[in-house]
Amino acid sequence: MMDSERAIKWFLRGYVVCLFVFVFLPIIASMVFSFNSQRFPTVPLGTFTWHWYETIWQDPDVWDAIKTSIIVSSCTSVLATFIGFCTAYTDYRYSFRFKGAFLALALLPPTIPLIIMALAMLAWFARIGASGEIWSVIIAHTVLTAPFAMAVIRLRLNQIDPNLESAAWNLGASEWTAMREIILPFAKPAIVSALCLTAAVSFDEFAVAWFVSGLNKTVPVIILEIVTGNIDPQVNAIGTFVFITSMTLVIIAQILIMTREKKDAPA
């Protein structure tokens, strides 16, 4: 009886490891291929090379795309985090009529397939005369990422003692002062976390960016265009850069939330 218990336990652990291998294999493989001399990678691997990095280093299109991506994702993260904070605070503090509809409006965008949003945004921006601009991508990405910022900050506000804010009011602080002195400092790690997370999502997003960016291509759009052409190991080199950037951002975002959770736990 005990033996079968242990066997099942180890089988299940092995299963989980296999699943993680499946999930991370493409990421690791892409990094390995980016240093591999073969045009069509296979085993045994070819020799080590910096060649693919050198070719993208010399490609002005890639540099333009990196510049565009950095502008888009930093502007998006600031806008989305601001809007997300406002929404999270409203949900935390107020109850009002149509709050359900308000929250639905705030949280719905990630449930609409990106390709549909891409088409809708493309047509809408063309209609209002804003197509193909760099800020049309920023506007679109803000819609897509604000819900993530809202969720992260809302979770943090859950942990605040609701009496803190009203205590400040009773001591004569205005609502604005209480916001600046109590809510904002408390929410700060979540705000930084939301900035990282929204930047990562924006940095990776390709469908909407592809449709609305026009000539201001972001990095994923460049990747999409290269991939559509042929197998080209340059993609692995750019991809490794994208992986490292977005993984760093997501890891920072997660650690910020996790460490604060532990600190705040009652001793």
Binding site: I27, L224, G239
Partner: peptide, 19 residues
């Protein structure tokens, strides 16, 4: 598991294409 969810799906798919 959260990390890959926010990490370029496009490049991961291309990687499968090669694999």
């Amino acid at each position: 598991l959260i990390i890959p969810f926010f990490t370029s799906y496009l490049v991961r798919t291309f990687s499968w294409y090669v694999i």
